[in-house]
């Protein structure tokens, strides 16, 4: 399930698509930092460009139980996360997605709608209205933390406890206790509300 068991090894690659300001790189970093608490190896690499608000942003996460020797962009992700549905049709977001992988899209639409627009049911397709959750819990349309909840529900690439601990540590220091609690709630709702459609 998302974790390739290659000679008993854990190996998962994630590609994140979104726009500047949606917390794409932060989501990737949060996942990587959580992997540390599970005593795994990890990388979080932003796709490097002149980042600015609203511009397309890509980030990659690798999680493994052995050291990761290289640092090139993920070519064949197990998981693709799309934080902004308006990128659809403008970018080849499913490029290289492995058969049996997971495509998780931030949209109020059902997974079936995404599957129909893809015409490509080889992966598990999941949707979550992460922006609505973020608006309701954080008061801001930053969908990264709820979508992380949805991802963890469908692919437990790190433990829930590790992500929750990372959110607590990182956000209480930076944003204060109240914002940290709101983020934990956003994560929880994302975890609960994600809908998926299993591919073949």
């Amino acid at each position: 399930m998302g974790v390739e068991s290659d000679v008993g090894r854990r190996w998962v690659e994630v590609r994140w698509h979104g726009r500047g300001g949606q917390g794409v790189v932060t989501a990737s970093n949060l996942l990587a930092e959580s992997a540390l608490l599970d005593n795994l190896y990890f990388q979080s690499l932003p796709e490097f460009g002149a980042e600015r608000s609203g511009a397309p942003v890509v980030a990659y996460t690798r999680i493994a139980d052995t050291p990761i020797p290289f640092r090139f962009p993920v070519q064949e992700p197990h998981i693709v996360v799309v934080l902004d549905y308006t990128l659809w049709g403008h970018l080849p977001v499913v490029l290289g997605l492995r058969p049996g992988g997971l495509l998780l899209v931030n949209t109020p639409a059902s997974p079936q709608v995404v599957v129909r627009s893809l015409g490509w049911p080889l992966a598990t397709v999941a949707t979550l209205d992460a922006t609505a959750i973020a608006q309701a819990t954080l008061g801001r349309p930053i969908p990264n933390v709820p979508i992380l909840g949805g991802l963890l529900r469908l692919r437990p690439v790190v433990s829930l406890e590790a992500v929750q601990a990372t959110l607590r540590q990182r956000l209480s220091a930076r944003l204060g206790h109240q914002a940290m609690q709101a983020n934990l709630q956003a994560f929880e709702r994302g975890y609960q509300q994600v809908q998926s459609w299993e591919g073949r």
Binding site: V7, R9, L36, N39, A64, T66, P67, I68
Partner: peptide
């Protein structure tokens, strides 16, 4: 391309506190 990490790659070894930075 199936990526598989060789067991020959030396682990991140030595002394210090593990961090994600």
């Amino acid at each position: 391309m199936a990526l598989a990490v060789s067991s020959r790659v030396p682990p991140v070894h030595g002394l210090g506190t593990p961090v994600a930075l």
